[in-house]
Amino acid sequence: MVSGPTVEGPCSPSETSPGLVGYRWMLRHYDNIGLLRPVAVDARSGYRYYTADQLRRLNRVIALKDLGLTLAQVQLVLDDVLDAAELRGLLRLRRAQLEAQLAADTTRLTRIEARLRAIDREGRMTTQDVVLKELPSLRVAELTAMAASYETADIGRAIRPLYPELLRRLAVAEVSLSGPSLAYYEPAGDGEKIVVHAGLEVAVSPDRARDFAVVDLPAVPAAATVIHRGPMDEVAGTLQLLAQWIEENGWRAEGYARELYVEYCADDPAAGVTELQQPVTRA
């Protein structure tokens, strides 16, 4: 022990000094939770006194907190409650947390840079926001048709008759809907032709006796999604925006975008609201 105890803070600042007030609050909190108790407390002033060894412990507290450990974890380390294996595990967990945080911040930085490029290119920030999210698995009743290509006009001609027919068949089978309609696509393996799937979410099991298919669409770990408002005949611009976002944010499109018809208005296509969902992987 040194010749005398050390006071909790310097005497020169006033008691209302923000730095000193914060310092005293910290030491008071450490005292309350048993992390660092003073050797003495002045009954009149409330000052706490510490030995040099205790200040070394305080420095260790500050250093461990700087690693991002909680005070409870710091106390376990300082009190030698953890053995070497447990200490390694604690620090590896903290490392994993920091790596995840760094990855998330790096992704945000990439998005900010993409927005800055868009502003430089267009003079403004787009009002259409692309959101990256997971897509749940879905069970849908569906009918399919062949489209000559992935061009909007060819897709429209192929898919429009499918929904009223599918609704008719579901009604005959007394199958109720459990969600909105959607469409998805896959190559036909014959030039530019595309297999068009018109689906309606249901909660029934597949049955070969029915005149429509019931299929389970798998969950998608990552999809870039954007809302398109208006008729699907005018979707090309929104698809282009989606493709641009995917490229500028370090992703790669996988297959074709799903179309989830949030609001389907057959009589007024301009009032339609569609979420485009493009599965993606890291480029």
Rank of each mutant, 00 (worst) to 15 (best):
I194W: 04
I155Q: 01
A148T: 12
D233N: 13
P164Q: 09
L82M: 04
R168I: 01
P38M: 05
V214R: 08
V273N: 05
G250C: 09
R229H: 14
L27Y: 10
A236F: 01
G19D: 12
A198S: 04
L82E: 05
M125T: 10
Q278Y: 12
A114N: 03
T225F: 09
L82V: 01
R169W: 03
Y256K: 04
D267S: 14
L67H: 14
V7M: 13
E186W: 00
E151V: 05
T152A: 13
V41P: 00
P269A: 04
G156A: 15
V77M: 02
N32V: 04
R28V: 03
A153T: 13
E113C: 07
Y150F: 15
R121E: 15
E248F: 05
Y261G: 12
W245P: 01
L109K: 04
V280F: 09
I119Y: 14
A203D: 10
A118E: 15
V131M: 11
M1G: 15
E186Q: 04
V2S: 13
A243C: 07
V204A: 03
V61S: 02
S137A: 15
Y47T: 03
A171L: 07
E8W: 07
A222E: 09
E259D: 10
A271S: 15
R48H: 03
L170E: 05
G34M: 11
L182H: 01
L138W: 11
A40Y: 07
P10T: 12
E234M: 10
R57D: 12
L132S: 03
S181E: 07
P38G: 04
L143Q: 06
R160G: 00
A209W: 01
G9F: 11
D233Q: 12
L260N: 13
H228K: 08
R88H: 13
V235F: 11
S12P: 00
A158F: 02
G46P: 03
A198N: 04
E186K: 05
L35D: 10
L217R: 14
R121M: 08
S14Y: 06
E192F: 02
A236Q: 10
D83C: 02
Y49G: 02
A63L: 09
T51N: 05
L69A: 02
Y185T: 01
Y163D: 00
P279G: 12
R117E: 09
R282N: 02
R117I: 01
T238K: 01
P5N: 05
